[in-house]
Design a protein around this nucleic acid. Structure first.
Lengths: 255, 255
DNA sequence: GGAAACACATGGTCAGACCAGTACACTCTG
DNA sequence: CAGAGTGTACTGGTCTGACCATGTGTTTCC
C-alpha cells in the first residue's frame, strides 16, 4: 500500500431499512405531508427496485411508528399520517411495564409538566381559553354524580384545555403521552377508590383553585398548586426527597 | 330478536398484528426474557399457522420497537433484547422535528427541563456523579482556550452528567431531543458569537454556580439558577411573560 | 338526477424458491 | 490430546408469482 486509503466500516443495510429511511426522511423533510398518499405497494416496488415483500416490511415498520397507514382496497394508496403522541404513550407504558423506567420517574416528569403547563397557561391564556376552562370545570361539577369514570373524563378535558392554553405543543404532547402511560400503569388504583365521592370533590376544588390562579394571571401560584396536587395524588410513588424538591420549588424564599 | 345480544364491534385484526401482540405480551409477562431466543421464522410460521411473510412482518415491527433482533445465519433464532429507552429518544426527536414547533416553545420547554433536572440532581446525585460533574467543569475550564466548539462540547458533557444525576431517564431523553432540535434551529447563532471568550467564561461561572447548589443539595436554588441561565442565553427568543413566569417561579415568596 | 351494479386496483396473505451468512460439530493435523 | 481448519445444516434476507376480499370511482340503469 503506497498511500493511506480512507476506508470506512461497511455494515450491510437491509433493503427494507433503506426503504424506510427514504420514506421517513421524505416525511421529515415535508416532501410528504399528512394526508398525502404513498404510491401503491406495487408501484413502490418498481421505484425502489425491490420485491413487494421488502416494500411491505418497510410499510409495516412505518405503520408501527405511526407515520403511515395502509387500508386494504383503497386505490389511493397508503396514507401519510399526522404525527401523534399515541405511539409515544405506548412506548413509555411499555418501558415502565418492563421496569426500564421507574414509575417514580414518570410521576416526577408529570409533576414538572403539569406545573409548567399551568404556569405558562396563566401567562398565555386567551379569553376564550379561559372560558373553555371554566366550562370544563362546570362540566366536572355536573359529572360528580355520574361516577368516577365520567368525572375523570371531564377532569382530563379540563387539563387538556389548560395544556392548550399553555400555547406550547411540546408540553401538550408530553402531557398527553404521560397521561396515557400513567393511566395504563395505575388504572386499577382508580377503580378501587372507595372514597371516590370525596376524591372527586377534592379534585374539583383543586381544579377550581388552579383555574383561579390562571385566571388571575398568577403563573407562579398556578404552577405551585398544580405540582402539589399531582403530588397529593401520586406522592406515595416518588421519594420524599423528590416530593420536597419538586413541591416546594416555589416555597423558597429568595433572600 | 327475543333477547339482548351483547354484540361488540368487530374490527378485522391483521394476522401479523396478532403475532406481534402475542410475542409482545409474552415479553411483558416475562415469559420471554432478554437474551432468550425466539423460534426460527420457519418454526414460528408453524406454531402461528401463518405464512412466513406474515411472521416476518411481525418480526420487523417487533424489531423496530427494539424488542427483538434478528441476525441472518444465527441458528439460535431472533434474540429478545433488553428494553432500552433509546427507542424513545428516536420517537421524541422525530416528534420534535416533525411537529411545527416554534423556537420559543422549544426554549420554554428547555427551561423547564433544565430547571427540573438540576433540582432533582441536587437531591439524587451520588458522590461519584458529583465527582463526574466536577471533572466535567474542570474539563470545560481546560477547553476555554480551544475555541467555542470544543468548549461547548465540554459544556454539553457537563449537562449530560447533570441529567444523569437527576436519575430520571425521561428528563434525559427529552433533554437530548431538545438539545438536538435547538442546535438545528439556532446553530448559526452560536457561530457568530463575537464575544465568545466572555461568553465561555460566563457559562463556566454559571455551571460552577449550579454545581455548587447541586453539591450543597439545594435543589430549589439549583433549579432557579439553571432556569435563569437558560433564560440568559435564549431569553430574547421567548416572550417576556414566559421569561418572567418561568424564571421567577422560585422567587415567589410564599405568604 | 339519483341509486344500484360493476370493474379494477389495492392491501393482506400465502406458497415456494434461492442466496449469503453464522454457529456448531467434525475433521485433520501437530 | 489440543488447536486450527473444514463442512454442513439451518438461519434470515430477498424474490417471484399467485389468490382473495375490500374499497373507490365509474358506469349503468331507472
Amino acid at each position: 500500500m503506497t498511500h493511506k486509503a480512507a476506508f470506512t466500516a461497511v455494515k450491510t443495510v437491509k433493503a427494507y431499512e433503506r426503504v424506510v429511511e427514504q420514506i421517513e426522511t421524505a416525511i421529515s423533510k415535508r416532501e410528504l405531508r399528512p394526508g398525502d398518499r404513498l404510491p401503491s405497494e406495487r408501484e413502490l416496488m418498481l421505484t425502489f427496485e425491490v420485491s413487494r415483500s421488502t416494500i411491505r416490511e418497510a410499510l409495516r415498520v412505518l405503520e408501527s411508528t405511526g407515520l403511515v397507514r395502509s387500508r386494504p382496497g383503497d386505490p389511493r394508496g397508503p396514507e401519510v399520517l399526522q404525527a401523534s403522541p399515541a405511539i409515544l404513550t405506548k412506548t413509555v407504558s411499555r418501558l415502565v411495564r418492563l421496569e426500564t423506567i421507574a414509575l417514580s420517574e414518570l410521576v416526577e416528569f408529570r409533576i414538572m409538566l403539569e406545573g409548567t403547563a399551568c404556569t405558562l397557561a396563566a401567562q398565555h391564556r386567551t379569553e376564550v381559553q379561559l372560558n373553555d376552562m371554566r366550562a370544563a370545570v362546570d362540566a366536572m361539577q355536573a359529572q360528580v354524580d355520574n361516577g368516577p369514570v365520567a368525572f375523570s373524563r371531564a377532569d382530563v378535558a379540563f387539563h387538556v384545555t389548560v395544556w392548550a392554553a399553555s400555547q406550547n405543543q411540546l408540553l401538550q404532547i408530553c402531557g398527553e403521552a404521560t397521561r396515557g402511560a400513567l393511566i395504563d400503569m395505575v388504572t386499577d388504583e382508580l377503580d378501587r377508590a372507595p372514597d371516590s365521592q370525596a376524591r372527586m370533590e377534592l379534585s374539583l376544588a383543586h381544579d377550581r383553585e388552579i383555574l383561579g390562579a390562571i385566571s388571575a394571571g398568577d403563573g407562579a401560584r398556578a404552577g405551585r398548586l398544580a405540582r402539589s396536587f399531582v403530588i397529593e395524588y401520586y406522592g406515595d410513588i416518588i421519594s420524599s426527597q423528590s416530593r420536597a424538591a419538586l413541591g416546594s420549588v416555589a416555597d423558597e424564599a429568595p433572600a
